[in-house]
Design a protein around this nucleic acid. Structure first.
Lengths: 232, 232
DNA sequence: ACGTAGTGTTACAGAAATGTGACATGCCTG
DNA sequence: CAGGCATGTCACATTTCTGTAACACTACGT
């Protein structure tokens, strides 16, 4: 696992293929989302913001190419890299696919290893350092570019896990998350740790934030935690 | 409550293995069914409708894969997630297994913890969770996403049971419920508590709502309680 | 007005959830 | 290889929640 777990969206109408890809990617440390059609894909894109999308050429309804074009046309989603899947021998598609905005192109059948390798390559060249904007909440500033957190201009000492946790919270404010959800989102889907581990890291995060900001991390008893500027 | 215990069916011809798995799952709060062969499994599926099935690769008679395929082909049972067990070193099976419709795949030997974790993950991603819309009634707002209740924008301090009670009332307005019904609906079917307990929680809920909104919870003398915007 | 059943209110002990500090382990750096 | 993080887990402390009982109050029939 090179960087923080990336989220990959797999769009294919054949469940077995989806699963196979998902397993391969998960073993490589990525988090997977799956969609059987462009509609499901669209909602997942909107609310989970995947870092990359694997798109089958053949899809019921809107074709893969058309969908890719649509994604690339929309400002909000156009930054998401697309890897297209296509059956072998259809080399012509390649051109169309790349023109539609795909960033890479893989021919079926392919080995999981090949898939992961290409995908890494795409991510490497399409993830520019620092397209992410800093987030600020009542004096607490998280800057993904500098990978640094400051409270009222004062740099905070914060561990890697706590940083990811805080980043997740600051990008998902005002909403309660269960320990399980946090493990999924912050630790990455396929890690097997105790739920109580979350509590410990919450504790460490609060301590790191200090008295001035620890109240932003709220306990939702019986449920989990929430990042909120409003008092509880 | 929503967290009602899931039922897991374990299909394996070796009794010790079955037992081990069953113990691990029961400790994690799941209800277990056991079957030594596909016939037993089939009847259990039909009349107990498990939420998930753990299926050994090697089975006498019909093989595990073949059985999985059959399950997935039948409309009635195809929704049941399947986790396959296989001996180590048989990586090839993985693909076959997943193609047959398995939702995850675990290699023996495995730790109970891993088993439970993977199983949770499968259940999580195969149990669609409905859209949770906020509900608002005369300034009182319950937002399931934030897991928070506000009265005229001001967050309320409210305990878990009171929250569930209020959520139930707000989704079932203008109708009287007996204490027994409330225990069923809010506490969850098979709990053994005094009816008077409801009164106490109603009291706590009213207090939490404060003077501005407690009138929404109305006493229906001789019957129970009602959530209504109209004065009684 | 009186009594009685039904409900409101409070206090409290046991249970459950969360907070907290310490420790073992594994990883990386020097 | 020593030593310093980072991390996950545990054990124990603390807080919060829950159900019950006991008592106070209210509504209703007589």
């Amino acid at each position: 696992m090179t960087k923080a777990g990336k989220t990959i969206l797999i769009v294919d109408d054949e469940a077995p293929i989806r699963e196979m890809i998902a397993v391969a990617l998960e073993m490589a440390g990525y988090e997977c989302l799956e969609a059987a059609n462009t509609q499901e894909a669209h909602s997942l894109i909107v609310d989970r913001k995947p870092d990359l999308m694997i798109l089958d050429w053949m899809l019921p309804g809107t074709s893969g190419v058309e969908f890719a074009r649509r994604i690339k046309r929309d400002d909000i989603t156009s930054e998401i890299p697309i890897v297209m899947l296509t059956a072998k021998g259809e080399e012509d598609n390649k051109v169309q696919g790349l023109e539609a905005g795909a960033d890479d192109y893989i021919t079926k059948p392919f080995s999981p290893r090949e898939l992961v390798a290409r995908l890494k390559a795409v991510l490497r060249r399409t993830t520019p350092q620092g397209v992410e904007d800093p987030i600020e909440v009542s004096g607490l500033l998280l800057d993904p570019v500098c990978h640094r957190v400051t409270a009222n201009e004062v740099p905070l000492e914060i561990g890697p896990t706590e940083y990811r946790l805080l980043q997740f919270f600051m990008t998902h404010q005002e909403r309660a998350y269960s320990r399980t959800q946090l493990l999924d989102q912050v630790w990455g889907g396929n890690v097997y740790v105790e739920e109580r581990t979350v509590d410990v890291h919450i504790r460490r995060l609060r301590k790191a934030l200090g008295a001035s900001h620890e109240h932003l991390i709220q306990t939702v008893r019986g449920t989990g935690y929430r990042f909120s500027t409003k008092a509880s």
